[in-house]
């Protein structure tokens, strides 16, 4: 009885410790640069090609600090003006399951850095690379694709949408985007 109690306490301790890593703050991190990321091969009507995964990039969507910083930069760099709070405006929505240029974090990174046709400007040289990764991680979290224990919960503003911690993950669609949009 006693040992079972001790074992469950130990287990609980380990579970708590597992939470320690999720918010490590790296202020001097060297972010993977644009050259390390293969640009996507998305073209109108084409089939998506598997993207080269970057192990360092994946860290960004598992880290609470990076995602919340991304949320701040999303506002600071005025992503709002076109994508609104994720629901889309003159730019496409970011919280749904439709990705014109790929929904992996590496692909979102290159969409931000390179710009995309029909209005998405290139932010190369405008936003430091680490911050672009953070924004990309936040954009991923909007559709429920980032780690649940790392995403920020309710924001300061009044919103009609659910907090990110309650958004169910929406897997990327396998079929190419509809041609009429």
């Amino acid at each position: 009885m006693y040992s079972r109690c001790l074992a469950s306490l130990l287990l609980l301790g380990c579970t708590l410790l597992a939470g320690c890593e999720r918010e490590t703050r790296a202020f001097h991190e060297e972010a993977p640069a644009i050259n390390d990321v293969s640009p996507t091969d998305f073209r109108a009507g084409g089939t998506p090609r598997p993207v080269a995964k970057n192990p360092q990039a994946a860290e960004y969507e598992r880290n609470a600090f990076h995602i919340s910083e991304g949320k701040r930069y999303y506002e600071w760099y005025n992503c709002y003006s076109c994508h609104a709070a994720g629901g889309g405006d003159i730019g496409p929505p970011l919280m749904d399951d439709e990705w014109r240029y790929g929904g992996e974090i590496e692909q979102i990174f290159s969409s931000i850095v390179e710009g995309r046709p029909n209005g998405m400007p290139s932010f190369a040289g405008r936003i430091p690379e680490q911050q672009v990764w953070e924004i990309a991680a936040y954009v991923r979290s909007m559709s429920g694709n980032a780690a649940k224990d790392a995403v920020p919960s309710r924001g300061d503003e009044i919103k009609t949408t659910k907090p990110l911690t309650q958004v169910p993950p929406t897997p990327e669609r396998s079929e190419p985007p509809r041609s009429n949009r």
Partner: peptide, 14 residues
């Protein structure tokens, strides 16, 4: 390196 003068501030290292 703004981050070594005032660690954690919102100015990135360029």
């Amino acid at each position: 390196d703004p981050q070594s003068v005032k660690p954690g501030n919102h100015m990135p290292v360029v």
